[in-house]
Design a protein around this nucleic acid. Sequence first.
DNA 1: TAAACGATGTGACATATCTCACATTTAGTA
DNA 2: TACTAAATGTGAGATATGTCACATCGTTTA
Lengths: 225, 225
Amino acid sequence: MKNNCITCAFKSKSAETLDEDHLNHLSCNNAMVKFRKGNPIFTQGTFSTNVVYLRSGLAKIHITGPYHEQIVRIVKAPRYLGLPTTIGDKINQYSVTAISDVEVCFIDITAFRHLLKETEHFAFEIILDLCKDELESIRRCSNRTQKQTRGNIADVILEFADHIYESDTFNLPVSQADIGNLVDTSRESVSRILTEFHKDGILDMKGKKIEIINKKSLQLISQNG
Amino acid sequence: MKNNCITCAFKSKSAETLDEDHLNHLSCNNAMVKFRKGNPIFTQGTFSTNVVYLRSGLAKIHITGPYHEQIVRIVKAPRYLGLPTTIGDKINQYSVTAISDVEVCFIDITAFRHLLKETEHFAFEIILDLCKDELESIRRCSNRTQKQTRGNIADVILEFADHIYESDTFNLPVSQADIGNLVDTSRESVSRILTEFHKDGILDMKGKKIEIINKKSLQLISQNG
DNA sequence: TAAACGATGTGACATATCTCACATTTAGTA
DNA sequence: TACTAAATGTGAGATATGTCACATCGTTTA
């Protein structure tokens, strides 16, 4: 299914810099695909022949570590998925899986490189994106290894509320096991800490539905361990 | 002190793509500075007005985490230092300190951006660098959080031998405390594990001098925890 | 050369969190 | 609706590793 990038309402910041000709070129080398919640968008170890752009929805980036699968990050549209693994290597170095229903654009890598060469603004926006992602990776890794589990779990909750859903009430799109391997702890510890937060009146939980009641406390826990 | 990039023997892969005119432009906006071991090259929290290129020597990239300073990575020349923090943000998001005597080029950021715009090959090489660094960050973080301390310390030794010094005998350029905060453990644990390796006949230590005796074992420890 | 400081070795103890075990609840499907 | 599988709650015990304490060794500096 071909896509029309000119009229697309979910353009990336880099695509915003393109003129009509280049957007047309992008449209011609671009396939929009829908994935249902839970399905893999691309998989570690396979060939990467396309640049992937997440048009709508949520996805998790995960990597097979030395012992177990680890979630690196949970991301929301709009953003590119796996530029490092597509451009930096021919084989995907990590996997991306939809955690809500998503719309994804697969852009032919040759066409993408063509755009990088032709239009310096486009390339610069991509560089900016890469730089910000790398900073984020470093910051996250430093937090994750230094903080104790309570702090990391508080972070995850705050991340969902502040950056992903932009609301203090939301449905967790992932299991507790997922949260565990996002912050590198066991499923059981996540459960224990979540019920602890509940008992302390910090948040309300009904199944997957979470409501943050005492955000100050949560932020304090995030800061102090 | 102005630099002549045309005759420079330590050109980056990206600079290799430049023609004489552009190299001249680079030379004119470029200052080469030497730092002695232990001195900061740039510091987290300060303004970043230059792109920094490590021409020779070793450096550590470190960041102030929620609890303590953490070494993110130890890098060797030739490579850029802190592209993400220079391009992605105006304030340095991390620090870089020399761990041997080093030579560093400070490139004016405006001139650097100019090169990015003018020459698509240059920009593409930079994008490649950024992508590879990001992949490396993710891989490292996943390893560090999953492996046990013994495995991480084995990794550091192997990294020095295989990638930094390219020899199984070398002088450790950092203290055990540094290694501790590179792999997120205490100074005492590093000491204990290092003497353990020594007792097991895996390596020989005389002061800072390390000689790997049984590399196979070390690799096994790196893999299995 | 001494003194002072930083880096390192090593023991004892505390503790966060993992693992295993099983109960219980929720969701998905015939 | 009932049955099955997956997700979650919770206890008990094991353990890797942090912290504190102090001794020793090497290196810089006055």
